[in-house]
Design a protein around this nucleic acid. Structure first.
Lengths: 194, 194
DNA sequence: GTCCACTCGCTTGTTTCGAGCAAGCTAAGT
DNA sequence: ACTTAGCTTGCTCGAAACAAGCGAGTGGAC
């Protein structure tokens, strides 16, 4: 059922996907999607939820017990891994993310919370990096987190609009390097990475 | 008419705005919006078009005949100015941008072209900066352009979802400074800016 | 073992509402 | 009087949402 919904979102976006199609593509009747999820919004909310769980799982698997800069790099790599293995998943997930940004307050608040959680995670890694002295003492974790998440969301957005032109992996690596150049503690970073 | 459409998009997003409401809010009949624009998609396309024109005008007014780093900074400032004066305008514009990313190929292609144009403009300023030796010779303009536009789009996206938390202006300045720290020619940049 | 009540997953009938089209109205210009 | 532009109204089609109901399977009472 959710698989069918995902396939249709990928093909036509949320707006042009009907609940009837979702049900019938999944091999059921026209009314099932309505009946199961109550409304179109809730179907998509459920989809987003499933994506988030899977994403979190993937990410924490690679980050493990790492902290600071190592954790940050691992999170970055987990994105790239997830992207290579499940490009469609990510694509659908972010189409949902972006297409709901203008919607009702309920939806927007959920989105805002997702964003905030993402920023918090990054800020935590940065704080740890500062404590571990791989990142400069003067750095403001929440600002860096905002920069990183902004870059990431914007990159995905442009990739959604034009997948052929945007080289996701190298762009992410480029940005990571540029960022570390600014916030990294010159002496320590090298020794950590090496 | 377009004013009414904008107001409704701001309030409910594209998805929950009906052509009937647009017409009636503008003081006309339920059918006028349909009649004028042919379809909902074309109404929004027209809105985006108007926004783009206004944006371009604002931007070129501040950039003027500047080039390189100066032009880049001017473009940056024009965004902030435009933002302060027309926050609603920008908001509606980007809701439209983001909500169409999953739509039909036609719409997506237009979006992709917008993004590409934006990247080209930035890359041009960077190239000029390299020629003027305010920016390091080793910098790849198109990569920097992708980083900048990604950051910008992602920042706007998070701001749309949660306007109270995201401090647009300072975030943009922060990022600008961090970027110049990486790509700027250390000696020249200072003399240029001062 | 049989029967009944209950539940769950699904379908089908129906209402409501929006998009889009077509036909027509009205008023202003010529 | 004729035309045209701008607007309205009537109508059709399709989608969402809801309600009612169907049927297979489960559990309990005797």
């Amino acid at each position: 059922m959710l698989e069918a919904a995902m396939a249709l979102v990928l093909e036509r976006g949320t707006h042009n996907t009907t609940l009837r199609e979702v049900g019938e593509l999944a091999g059921y009747s026209r009314g099932l999607a309505s009946n199961r999820f109550g409304s179109k919004d809730e179907l998509f909310a459920e989809l987003i939820h499933v994506f988030n769980e899977r994403w979190k799982k993937e990410s924490s698997a690679l980050v493990g017990s790492k902290t600071g800069l190592e954790a940050f790099d691992a999170a970055n790599d987990s994105i790239i891994d997830f992207m290579n293995d499940n490009s469609d998943y990510i694509r659908a997930m972010f189409i949902l993310y972006y297409e709901t940004v203008g919607s009702s307050t309920v939806m927007r608040d959920r989105l805002a919370e997702q964003h905030a959680a993402y920023r918090r995670a990054i800020a935590r890694y940065i704080s740890q990096g500062i404590a571990e002295q791989t990142i400069k003492q003067t750095v403001d974790p929440s600002r860096v987190a905002l920069q990183y998440t902004s870059f990431f969301f914007g990159l995905v957005y442009q990739w959604l609009a034009n997948p052929d032109v945007i080289e996701f992996e190298s762009a992410l690596h480029d940005f990571r390097d540029a960022m570390i150049q600014v916030i990294g503690e010159p002496d320590r970073v090298v020794s950590r990475i090496a």
